[in-house]
């Protein structure tokens, strides 16, 4: 398996991570067909505005340009000499990073359109992304034994490579959470990169503007309404939180922040294999199981939106994962039999 291979059409993956619960095409986030979106009239977390940049590296431009020009590009002739404040450390890092990325990209991917021309805009985007990645990698699961400085550096390399290949999406918070468990279990930069790329084909749709999050919420709504009308009514009566925003983090990260590392491995394996033996929507049933396991507590305490968000935040990393997995399987059967009886 070559790491530098672009993953455009490949469906063969080490993890069976080819199946997406909602859709399998590698559509750019904004291009989700409108009919795939449920009708959501409330102020949905997924109906975000396009992000705009607020980080600039003007002082680093000329340096980067010259470094790239030397090796690769002939199109940036109009560049101006270095002016303004020097931040040589950042510049050096940026140049190194870009050089690295350019070299590895050029080895395998001749189509990379960005190779021939580095516009100021592109460089700005890259710098902004690197800046964000650096901020988050530094604080990624640092209480977990695996993430030593050396391994965090690997995490950073992978994230930079991925974001370079997906600049239109850019780095989004949460990506580190998805990469970290892969890194821990594979302990290999190139393998982890490949698996992460595959995983992101499904997961990127959950990120803002990806469209899948609203579908998850709508599905949760329908399923709870059918399976647990008592709970559904309580949710409606206590300020109506049947928008299910309290499940946001669950879906965004495949429950990674809800579980301890060893449980993440167990749950992710089930999520990955489920499309072949159980359901393509297994994450949905896991979410449903999480709610169902605590339904008595939710009802007895007459929880409103704030209570339930707080409750699940406090319960993070304290769930009985085997119970939840069992419950999720039972719920799949329950829904299947409901559908068969119709």
């Amino acid at each position: 398996m070559s790491v530098d291979e672009p993953d455009a059409e490949s469906q063969e993956t080490p993890n069976g991570e080819d199946s997406t619960p909602i859709m399998t095409t590698l559509a750019p986030p904004a291009a989700v067909p409108p009919e795939e979106r449920p009708l959501v009239e409330f102020d949905s977390p997924d109906s975000g505005l396009p992000s705009s940049r607020n980080y600039s590296v003007t002082s680093a431009h000329s340096q980067i340009l010259s470094s790239i020009d030397d090796g690769q590009s002939t199109e940036e002739e109009g560049r101006t000499p270095v002016g303004g404040r020097q931040d040589s450390l950042i510049e050096d890092r940026l140049c190194n990073q870009l050089d690295k990325l350019v070299t590895s990209g050029a080895d395998s991917d001749g189509m990379s359109a960005s190779l021939s021309s580095y516009t100021i805009e592109l460089l700005d985007t890259v710098a902004l992304n690197l800046h964000r990645i650096d901020k988050d990698v530094q604080r990624c699961d640092r209480n977990y034994y695996y993430f030593t400085t050396a391994n965090l550096e690997k995490l950073r390399n992978i994230m930079c490579s991925y974001v370079w290949e997906h600049l239109e999406m850019g780095y989004v918070q949460g990506m580190c959470d998805l990469l970290a468990p892969l890194m821990v279990i594979l302990d290999d930069e190139s393998l982890a990169y490949s698996c992460f790329t595959q995983l992101m084909k499904r997961m990127s749709q959950n990120f803002p503007n990806g469209g899948a999050m609203d579908t998850h919420f709508a599905n949760m709504r329908s399923l709870i309404q059918i399976l647990d009308s008592e709970l559904f009514e309580l949710m409606q009566q206590n300020g109506d939180y049947t928008h299910f925003y309290f499940c946001y983090r669950w879906f965004l990260l495949d429950f990674k922040r809800e579980l301890l590392y060893e449980d993440v491995f167990a749950v992710w394996e089930v999520i990955w294999v489920a499309p072949r033996i159980s359901s393509r929507h297994f994450v949905l049933f896991l979410a449903l199981a999480l709610v169902t396991v605590y339904r008595e507590i939710i009802i007895d305490n007459n929880m409103d939106f704030t209570d339930i968000i707080k409750f699940f935040n406090e319960m993070a990393e304290r769930h009985d994962v085997q119970l939840i997995l069992r419950m999720a399987r039972e719920l799949v059967h329950k829904v299947q039999s409901l559908m068969d009886n119709k």
Binding site: D43, S44, P45, D46, S47, G48, L49, S51, S52, N54, G170, V172, Q173, F207, P208, N209, H243, Y245, Y248
Partner: peptide, 9 residues
């Protein structure tokens, strides 16, 4: 910034 639409809710 990308999550602003989420946090706004």
């Amino acid at each position: 910034e990308r999550f602003r639409s989420v946090t706004r809710s």
